[in-house]
Design a protein around this nucleic acid. Structure first.
Length: 376
DNA sequence: AATCCGTGGCA
DNA sequence: TTGCCAAGGAT
């Protein structure tokens, strides 16, 4: 330890790197010590990890690497293949930007990721954090990425009283002042590992922390009160109707959502608008085609980042010869797995199509719960 | 600057 | 159960 007894002294990057060399996480996208990182893998993992946990990313990362081994393969792939491979991961604008970024790297940079923070920042889907992270990890540039982990670690070590997100520049300044020129990538990853495994949001394991001594929040016993955060308001419940049309040959009626906005570019069954004051009683007026629509019991609920959604599901069987309405398509049930269906829509399809059988009717509601008595 | 973007896991 | 949170970016 370089800093054995110095409570109140500056945190020493060397102490953190020493800890990292012993305790770093082994992750699929990380180069082993001594290996040269692959910028494509670093970039792909950073995009996937935006607001997404390591556990959720791992299988997607492996699948992407298999289907799109390099940036050229990804750039040449059809959009549907990319969106389909991303389906379920969430934040679908990331997938659109990922594809656009791959094309830009091929066209503007000859298929090689640019080795500067500024040039990286100019690519689609790469913001301040990702530009700094890729620069530091893939190219050993002394950049200072600041993610949620690093915000937490630094706000505690320096007792940053300013609330997020206003505190971001202050925190960035603290990090930049500590970046060791010889190991910027390891330093960034060390901070993230520390935040993920030791300096956790709740009950941080301060006794195991290489920066326990210089940590000012710890010294005051206030570590769990950082980072300060501005209060956020919650979204209002929206309702709507979803229409599952099943053709007698087994095909289901689908359409593709607008390229931008909520669930942009993803597939869905036809639905009404989703509104706070939606009148389910008049839902059949919003049906995509004429049929004997049957209202299914219960609802499908889904919570987005900024509002909860409650969909009433309608079901109808139609003749095999029924043509698709304008802008829609019939997809065979076997083909549903290949459609870029977000989870909300998978819940709807499951609600309407899954055979209830003589299921054990789980308390925890796995399928179609008649979750409301619906008093007029 | 504030809002809009998914999803799953975990106390 | 509910709320919080996770390697943020675009507008």
């Amino acid at each position: 330890m370089v800093n054995p007894s110095g409570a109140g002294l500056k945190p020493d990057p060397a102490d953190l790197l020493c800890w990292y060399d012993r305790h770093r996480r082994r992750l699929p996208w990380r180069a082993l010590p001594g290996e040269t990182p692959d910028p494509y893998r670093v970039w792909l993992s950073e995009i996937m990890l935006q607001q997404t946990t390591v556990a959720a990313v791992a299988p997607y990362f492996a699948r992407f690497l298999e289907r799109f081994p390099g940036v050229e393969a990804l750039a040449e792939a059809p959009s549907e293949a990319v969106m389909g491979a991303w389906a379920g991961l969430g934040y679908y604008s990331r997938a659109r930007n990922l594809h656009a970024c791959a094309k830009a790297v091929v066209e503007r940079h000859g298929g090689r990721f640019p080795a500067s923070e500024e040039a990286l920042r100019a690519l689609p889907g790469i913001g301040d954090y990702t530009a700094a992270a890729v620069a530091a990890i893939a190219f050993q540039i002394p950049a200072a990425p600041v993610d949620g982990n690093i915000e937490r670690v630094m706000s505690r070590v320096f007792t940053v009283e300013e609330a997020l997100p206003k505190a971001k520049p202050v925190i960035k300044g603290h990090v930049a002042g500590l970046v060791p020129p010889d190991r910027p990538g390891d330093f960034a990853q060390a901070l993230m590992d520390l935040g993920a495994t030791i300096c956790t949001p709740k009950r941080p394991a301060c006794a195991l922390c290489p920066w326990m001594t210089p940590c000012r929040a710890r010294a005051e016993g206030l570590q769990e009160t950082f980072p300060r955060k501005a209060p956020k308001r919650e979204g209002e419940l929206r309702r709507g109707a979803a229409f599952v049309a099943l053709r007698n040959d087994g095909a289901v009626l689908l359409r593709t959502r607008e390229p931008k906005g909520l669930l942009g570019g993803m597939a869905e069954v036809p639905t009404s608008a989703w509104e706070a004051d939606y009148d389910v009683g008049k839902a059949v007026l919003d049906a995509p085609l004429d049929a004997r629509w049957q209202r299914l019991p219960g609802h499908v609920r889904h919570v987005f980042t900024h509002f909860p959604l409650e969909l009433t599901v309608y079901f109808a069987r139609v003749p095999a010869a029924t043509p698709p309405p304008e802008g829609m398509r019939w997809t065979p049930r076997a083909g549903l797995a290949d459609e870029p269906l977000p989870n909300a829509m998978r819940k709807v399809l499951s609600h309407a199509l899954d055979v209830p059988a003589a299921a054990p009717a789980r308390k925890g509601r796995k399928a179609a719960p008649p979750d409301e008595a619906e008093p007029a």
